[in-house]
Write a protein that binds this DNA or RNA. Structure first.
Lengths: 205, 205
DNA sequence: CCCTTCGTGTCACACCCGTGATACTTTTTG
DNA sequence: CAAAAAGTATCACGGGTGTGACACGAAGGG
């Protein structure tokens, strides 16, 4: 048998082509035929690596989930312990910017994820992945805040997650024309307000 | 000619059917044939009131834009002048909750709007409406904050809009299982932090 | 060397879509 | 009363979709 083909690599290529189609044409633009053209393969080949249309899409959403998860766990939480003031803001900002469309690579991932999150409302097949991502994100942010000794980390994490989601949606979609600079600035302003002493919210000690 | 039919009412019925399909099946579920079935009309009739598939969708997004705009302008901005502390939080909360899916009616509107915002990324035909809505919202929130004498109203409005968007997306889509109570609480927590004296952000005087 | 297996490629089928064209019925207007 | 208009209803066409079923070539194992 011709085992010269790296199956995992091929699958990755196809998923990458699906990403490009997701960005260019949205969720419904990802048909088997278009993916075949985009990846330079024949339809038969695509179907050889992904039995289903459905399984291809699930592979795509899983891939984006893995990538974003890796981005988050790249920075150790322990390194946050003891940080105060602007140093704390900077460290947290750097971690959370990993999830925002601040460069082309992250922009693609944000778009792909957004398409799947919205699609998951109607297509339950994607929910396991999107729900797990949301849970992981909440947990990670909560841990960050706990390491920074923020009062009521769970609630503040919820607000931060909401801000992140809103910023990502606004900057990915063309209804806000929110530039990268403003996204960064808005996130930083929010983090500063969370990490600074506030009436009722005692932060770093 | 048989003018017994109220043209505007019929169009509204069809758009309402499109809303239901949008909620149940998402953007791609809104086909002329399905809208015809959902509205109890013949496909020929639907096409009599909306020449195009495209124009039907544009009518739908315009309708949801009008409704949300009306919700926002319902409460006079002047009434905010002079409010301080918890009274200011409460007044602002009531205004912004108009845009969040806190009841079934608003939930439908949030879903429809979300579907169109995401679709607008790939279908420029919807952009005029979604961009106008985003601009109006930013302006309205900025005015609210100015009336409440918040320092730097434009920047704080940006954060609030981001929180609103994130909360709406999270609670509409099933990846967060964010209940109405938690949506309300998170928004309130954010508004409290904005309207309370913060280092660098001097609020109500 | 054969032959099994993997990878590639091609048809055809049934389904759904938007749209153009065209009748037929009903009711109002001149 | 007749004619015109509005509303309702069908048909067929071309295009795109996922999927099942095949056939063909290449390469590794026995």
């Amino acid at each position: 048998m011709p085992a010269r083909i790296d199956l995992a690599q091929r699958r990755r290529d196809v998923v990458e082509a699906a990403f490009r189609l997701l960005v260019a044409e949205g969720f419904t633009g990802v048909s088997l035929r278009k993916v075949a053209v985009e990846s330079g393969l024949n339809i038969g080949s695509v179907r050889h690596y992904f039995s289903d249309h459905r399984s291809l899409l699930i592979a795509a959403v899983t891939e984006v989930g893995d990538r974003m998860g890796a981005r988050l766990t790249r920075h150790p939480t322990d390194a946050l312990a003891g940080l105060t003031g602007e140093a704390a803001v900077e460290a947290l900002q750097r971690r959370l910017e990993e999830l925002l469309p601040v460069d082309e690579e992250r922009r693609v991932e944000s778009i792909v994820l957004t398409e799947f999150i919205v699609a998951a409302r109607v297509h339950p097949a994607f929910r396991p992945v999107t729900e797990r991502m949301a849970a992981d994100l909440r947990l990670a942010v909560t841990d960050f805040l706990r390491a920074l000794r923020v009062r009521d980390p769970a609630e503040e994490a919820e607000r931060i997650v909401a801000v992140l989601g809103g910023l990502a949606l606004d900057s990915v979609t063309p209804h806000g024309s929110l530039g990268v600079a403003r996204v960064r600035a808005t996130l930083r302003a929010h983090l500063r307000s969370v990490l600074t002493d506030v009436a009722g919210h005692t932060a770093a000690r």
